[in-house]
């Protein structure tokens, strides 16, 4: 077992454990923190699988953007400040049934396919190639994604603003 493999196992175990933790904890804030753990672990997995750019984006966007948004959401939607936002569970039995079944189906399907390829390094500089492909082959989706982000930003700002609602 190489070091890389060990790191892969560790990251994967962390990610899985964090995901299960999200499922089990009651405190929303704890769940948010566990989500950060999960996302960063996944970023480590992405690095190992030769997707450095994705890993960076993951950390920047998710850990830096989405998580901040979520934490703000938690803060703004807890009625009494200082008291932790605790959630209760519902539909536990059907939900666990659905989850277990879906996981089982996925695992069974994956196990039937031959994906046994050892991870190896891609030829050339991946980051360089990513930038070239992004600016050349995928420039249109890239621009559309930018516009999408802009629209989402404006929409989120307008939706959340109390100004608009007061005007109504």
């Amino acid at each position: 077992m190489s070091l890389i493999s060990l790191a892969l196992y560790i990251f994967e175990a962390l990610a899985g454990a964090a995901a299960l933790g999200i499922l089990l904890v009651r405190n929303v804030f704890h769940a948010a923190l566990l989500l950060i753990v999960c996302l960063i672990s996944l970023a480590g997995v992405f690095v190992i699988y030769n997707a450095e750019f994705i890993a960076v984006t993951q950390i920047l966007v998710y850990a830096g953007g989405v998580l901040v948004l979520i934490v703000f959401g938690i803060m703004l939607s807890s009625r009494i400040a200082g008291k932790p936002l605790v959630v209760t569970n519902q539909y536990v039995l059907p939900a666990s049934l659905a989850g277990i079944l879906s996981a089982g189906i996925l695992i069974k399907l994956f196990s039937e396919q031959p994906f046994a390829q050892q991870p190896g390094a891609l030829p050339g500089n991946p980051m360089n190639q990513t930038g070239i492909a992004l600016m050349r082959d995928y420039v249109l989706p890239f621009e559309i994604a930018g516009i999408l982000l802009l629209i989402a930003l404006i929409g989120a700002a307008v939706t959340a603003s109390s100004f608009y609602s007061k005007k109504q």
Partner: peptide, 16 residues
């Protein structure tokens, strides 16, 4: 939940 349940049943019959 119901959407997922339907999907699971669909997959169960189609893929397995």
């Amino acid at each position: 939940f119901w959407a997922v349940a339907g999907l699971i049943i669909f997959l169960f019959f189609v893929l397995i």
